Simulated scan of single mutants.
Amino acid sequence: MRKSFYEYLMTERNPNSHDEIAEFANNAFFDQSFPKHTDNFAEISKYLEENAGYLPTMTIFDDVWQRYLAYLD
């Protein structure tokens, strides 16, 4: 079974890093409402735009999404 985006994002966690992707992953870990079981770009993007004040720019999400797609290949 294919990993959800959230499952992939959790591989980027690093509580000791100030890298923007690691910080995104760290914050998403604590976000109880994050859509954890989907791989749908539109659903995740909409959620982040409306609810993720911890994400300073959607470009970070776009970068991680591209890594996720490469991981799935």
Rank of each mutant, 00 (worst) to 15 (best):
F5G: 05
E49N: 06
E23Q: 13
I60F: 04
Y68H: 00
A52E: 08
F29L: 12
K46Y: 06
F30Q: 12
V64K: 08
E50C: 03
L72E: 07
S33Q: 10
W65V: 01
N16I: 08
F24Q: 04
L69N: 15
S45P: 00
V64W: 04
I21Y: 01
Y68C: 01
Y68M: 02
E23D: 11
A42L: 08
N40R: 14
S45E: 13
D73T: 10
Y6P: 06
Q32S: 15
A70R: 15
A52P: 02
N16M: 10
G53C: 02
Y71F: 13
V64H: 01
A52Y: 07
H37Q: 12
Y71W: 01
F34H: 09
N51K: 12
K46F: 03
M58H: 11
H18T: 13
F34K: 08
I44Y: 04
K36V: 10
D62N: 11
H18V: 07
T11Y: 03
N27M: 03
T38E: 06
K36A: 08
A22T: 05
D39K: 11
F30S: 15
T59E: 13
F34P: 02
S33T: 05
H37S: 07
A70W: 05
F24G: 03
R2L: 14
I60T: 12
M10G: 01
S17V: 09
T38P: 01
Y68Q: 00
Y47T: 04
R67Q: 09
T59G: 15
N27W: 12
P15H: 13
F29P: 03
L55D: 01
M10K: 13
P56V: 01
L9M: 07
P56L: 06
R13P: 03
L48K: 00
T11C: 08
P35T: 03
M10L: 14
S45K: 13
M58N: 15
E12I: 09
L48M: 11
E7D: 10
A28H: 04
Q66V: 02
L9I: 01
F24P: 09
K36G: 06
N40M: 04
E7K: 14
S33M: 12
N27V: 06
K36F: 04
Y71H: 06
Y6V: 07
S33E: 15
E23R: 14
A42C: 02
L69A: 05
Y71P: 11
M1G: 13
M1Y: 02
N51I: 04
T57N: 15
N14G: 11
L69K: 14
A70Y: 11
M10I: 10
N14I: 09
K3A: 10
H18P: 00
A52S: 14
F34W: 02
F5K: 07
L9H: 05
G53V: 07
L69R: 15
E23N: 12
D19L: 01
R13S: 03
L69T: 10
D62E: 07
Q66S: 15
L55Q: 08
T59H: 14
